[in-house]
């Protein structure tokens, strides 16, 4: 995969951000990754597939600008252009919010495919923020994906659910059903990683998780106060000033676009004795 500059024909690559388990950071990661891609100059759209529990709009800080949504477009009540919200910080970034009132059955394979095809003609990356679970909504989010980012916390239930999702990605998706198609490129993004607890043997290591899931690693995002702070103000963490989490997401984004970036686990270490004694800027 080559990274082409803005003006070439759009890449039209569909990436699903999924996990199975809820609360592991799918929406946070969708926001951070889509903003990170847009920051690098790629025309990017992020779609909220969590019908009925719209939240991507708040994470992206555009909740007051939602007029039409994804479901309106699928059902023909609005044009795609009317529903897309242009980000105010990056002109390469758009958001397609979901409906707060409908339910997941409003997502149909045909409807989703039609919208994705329209988006592929215009955008380099189409980031699909999956709902939790493995039911209809989650399956619709992953169905047409070229690539999957499985968000996983180093914790037993999250890893187990990620394993289920990896199974679905390799069996229940368009690429899996199409004979001769290249399988979905699945990779794991470990979030809420706490190096101190890993050092103390209280948390599974990155290698432990990778050994169990047996898929490539996209990145490791440390547990970080910057995440909550960014969501409080409706800014993707990759646009909200420097932090260990933003750094980790930026690295992951570079890897998504095919750039080799050394895997580093940036920690939000607690200040040591000297740092506490003598203080530290920032």
């Amino acid at each position: 995969m080559t990274t082409e500059p803005k003006n070439n024909p759009p890449l039209g690559r569909v990436i699903v951000i999924t996990s199975g388990k809820g609360g592991v950071g799918k929406t946070t990661s969708s926001a951070a990754i889509s903003a990170g891609l847009a920051k690098q100059g790629f025309k990017t759209v992020v779609i909220d597939f969590d019908v009925g529990l719209r939240n991507l709009d708040m994470t992206m800080g555009c909740e007051r600008r939602v007029v039409f949504d994804f479901i309106n477009v699928i059902q023909g009540d609005a044009k795609l252009k009317q529903a897309l919200i242009k980000d105010k910080r990056l002109d390469t970034l758009s958001i397609l919010p979901t409906s707060q009132t409908r339910d997941k059955d409003a997502l149909t394979k045909e409807g989703v495919e039609k919208v994705l095809n329209e988006l592929k003609a215009e955008f380099d990356y189409i980031v699909c923020d999956s709902p939790a679970g493995i039911e209809h909504g989650a399956q619709m989010a992953m169905h047409y994906a070229d690539e999957a980012v499985v968000v996983t916390n180093p914790e037993v239930s999250s890893v187990r659910d990620s394993d289920r999702v990896l199974g679905l990605l390799s069996s229940q998706t368009k690429r899996a059903e199409t004979v001769g198609a290249e399988p979905i490129k699945a990779q794991v993004l470990i979030t809420r990683y706490d190096q101190d607890r890993v050092d103390r043997g209280e948390m599974m290591t990155v290698d432990d998780v990778l050994e169990i899931l047996a898929v490539p690693l996209l990145g490791v995002v440390p547990e970080s106060k910057a995440i909550l702070k960014a969501s409080n103000v409706g800014t993707p963490v990759t646009l909200d000033g420097p932090s260990a989490a933003a750094q980790a997401y930026d690295d992951a984004v570079s890897r998504l676009t095919g750039t080799q970036v050394e895997m580093r686990i940036v920690g939000e270490r607690r200040p040591g004795l000297f740092q506490r004694l003598f203080g530290r800027a920032s």
Partner: peptide, 15 residues
């Protein structure tokens, strides 16, 4: 106390 190792072992058997 290495509860992390226990987590890993349990997951490997279950999965």
């Amino acid at each position: 106390p290495a509860s992390a190792q226990t987590a890993k072992d349990r997951l490997q058997i279950l999965l």
